[in-house]
Design a protein around this nucleic acid. Structure first.
Lengths: 240, 240
DNA sequence: CTTCGACCTTGCGCCAGCGCAACAAGCATG
DNA sequence: CATGCTTGTTGCGCTGGCGCAAGGTCGAAG
């Protein structure tokens, strides 16, 4: 679509270590695309014909099981590389990416990937790093779900969201896109009901402030303690 | 240590697409190292000074939380690339790799990584693929733990192990390395006790055959049904 | 053959959190 | 401003599977 302004993208990590002329060349192959809120950037199971860098907005990446169970895999924020299925040798996208707010992304044809990394090895490094840190995050999540109580998991999830997409407001830190209790439930492997109960309790204690698709962390520090298993509810005591 | 026989490694996926001369050159930089059962290839938190390809044996990769909770992240089988922390820009190994049986691995100094991928871009692709499929697996695991009953998760875990490291025996498929109930528990986010109970029940039904650090799948097909949530115990019915 | 330690089994009681269900509160649309 | 839909709240009862604890079994070492 539109030509892309280099100044917008010069400091994306993906472009780090490339000369301006090289950046230009990369950009010349990309198209910039708008995705209105709630529209899909790509769908799980569709052919992985493009890869992307998010320029603006937030995406929710979700996976649905054959039985219809949905899970929020992660959120993508501006600056991140995503949809690199082809690079991992997947011919089809393993998940669906939906714009949580109006968003803009750069899109390259997947077919260019091989040629581009051959020409710019730093791209491969960059992708490897992206995928690597995603792997770290996902493993951390496995460990959380395995070992922690629901309350701690929700606390962790909120803190991570705040870190990734927090906006400072008077009352504390607000998560910068609409997110439902259902979404939080799907991120933490629990149910809408339980999340709702927990957030209500926290609201009473002044830890968070809720609203329709809105969450503000009022006391991140205390939340952090909760997430680490402090607070009087200790399920597995260390050693007496 | 020893010089490496090229014929041993010519068909590792990591070397696919490289000319014999190039393979030779890569191998010249590697050392082959023996790891006796129960010895560590690297430790969580140690400096990531090498990366590896497993030539023979099986490794158990585990992560320990600051609170002392342990989790089995995965098992590595022969032919796989592992310990590529450096490539993901981690300066330290995020987990510990322990030989589940006597094993042999090729080791390269991490410092060579950047130079090697610049010279052989196919290495980067190969690594990206490895990390990518690991990411897929880990995400699948998150979804399993989030949505499935313990019994299904254990079934899935066993089937995956059998697929990755199964050896055909008269009684069925045996998992090719010593694995304790505790290990299975750590893979599935449950407890030793629960795993033991489940395996006992399955043994009664002729689904598996147990033993000290030994598991044989007698009826993989029926296990598969169980894993997919067939069998009369349906917690979340689709729609009536 | 005995001893020791690692690994496995099993019964029992309990509770976190899920499923159900009914309702309330926003927001959008005509 | 009435209607309808989506999202969030909350009470209640039930249960999967965890924690605890006691005991059993197998393999290795001497």
């Amino acid at each position: 679509m539109a030509a892309v302004d280099r100044s917008l993208v010069a400091n994306l990590s993906m472009f780090a270590g490339l000369a301006p002329a090289e950046q230009e060349e990369l950009l010349r192959e990309a198209r910039s695309v708008r995705y209105p809120k709630d529209s899909a950037v790509f769908e799980q199971g569709a052919e992985a014909d493009r890869f992307f860098v998010l320029l603006h907005g937030h995406l929710r990446v979700e996976k649905t099981t054959p039985q219809g169970q949905q899970t929020v895999v992660r959120y993508v924020s501006a600056g991140e590389l995503f949809g690199v299925a082809q690079a991992m040798n997947l011919s089809h996208y393993p998940a669906t990416a939906v714009a949580a707010v109006d968003s803009v992304a750069l899109a390259w044809p997947s077919s260019s990937w091989a040629r581009l990394i051959a020409k710019y090895p730093s791209l491969a490094s960059s992708a490897l790093q992206t995928v690597g840190s995603r792997l770290q995050d996902t493993q951390a999540r496995v460990i959380e779900i395995s070992n922690e109580q629901v309350e701690q998991r929700v606390a962790h999830a909120l803190l991570r969201l705040a870190k990734q997409a927090g906006r400072k407001v008077e009352a504390g830190i607000e998560i910068d896109f609409p997110i439902s209790r259902q979404d939080v439930a799907e991120m933490t492997g629990t149910t809408l009901h339980t999340v709702s109960r927990i957030l209500s309790a926290w609201e009473t204690q002044g830890l968070v402030e809720g609203g329709r698709q809105r969450i503000v962390l009022r006391d991140p520090h205390r939340l952090h303690l909760l997430a680490e298993g402090a607070e009087e509810n200790r399920p597995r005591a260390p050693k007496p």
